[in-house]
Amino acid sequence: MSLTKRFLKTKPECKVTFKLDEEACHDAKSIHLVGDFNGWDKEDTQLKKNKTGDYSVTVTLEVGKDYHFRYLIDGKKWVNDWEADYYAPTEFNSENSVVRL
């Protein structure tokens, strides 16, 4: 798992690449990035599988905010990012991953 941040010079935005390695995916059929930046929509932001078996997606986000997110594997299993900037407790007795921009 990894988060890669690329801050834009001309806009207050950052391109964030969210990546799950093959080991974390365990032969998943689909993986979605679900967070407050997409209204916690379980279908909106799907990660794509690359040649090495890793999954990733890049999202453009506004700088100066913290964004809560999790990965949803096969519509059933919620997973946090091991390299999140920090974790925040939820009302569901779990934690969200957070990326700070």
Rank of each mutant, 00 (worst) to 15 (best):
V34K: 06
F92M: 08
K77Y: 07
D81P: 00
K77H: 11
A84W: 09
W78Y: 11
T45F: 06
K65D: 12
K15L: 13
A24G: 01
T60G: 04
T90M: 01
E23V: 10
N93C: 09
E95M: 01
D36W: 06
F69A: 05
Y67A: 01
K49E: 14
I31Q: 07
D74E: 07
W40I: 04
V59A: 03
K19S: 15
V16C: 07
K15S: 12
E22M: 03
T10D: 15
Y67E: 02
N80H: 03
L61H: 03
C25I: 07
T58M: 05
Y71E: 10
S97C: 05
G53V: 10
E13D: 12
K49M: 14
V63Y: 13
T45W: 06
S56V: 00
L8C: 04
L61P: 07
E83Y: 02
R6L: 14
W82T: 14
K48M: 09
E43Y: 13
N38V: 05
T17F: 07
G53C: 10
E23Q: 09
T17V: 12
F92A: 11
D74C: 08
Q46A: 13
K48T: 14
K77Q: 15
D66L: 01
R100S: 15
N80V: 01
D66M: 02
K65S: 11
L20I: 10
T90W: 00
T52M: 08
D21R: 09
S94E: 12
D27W: 00
T90Q: 00
E95A: 00
H32L: 01
A28E: 10
N38P: 12
K5Q: 10
R6T: 14
E91Q: 05
L20M: 15
K5N: 09
H68R: 08
E62A: 12
A24E: 14
V98L: 05
T58S: 13
V59M: 03
V79E: 13
K77C: 11
S56G: 06
N96A: 10
V59L: 04
R70G: 00
L72H: 09
S30C: 08
V63S: 10
T17M: 13
D81I: 01
S2F: 02
S94M: 03
E13L: 12
V79W: 02
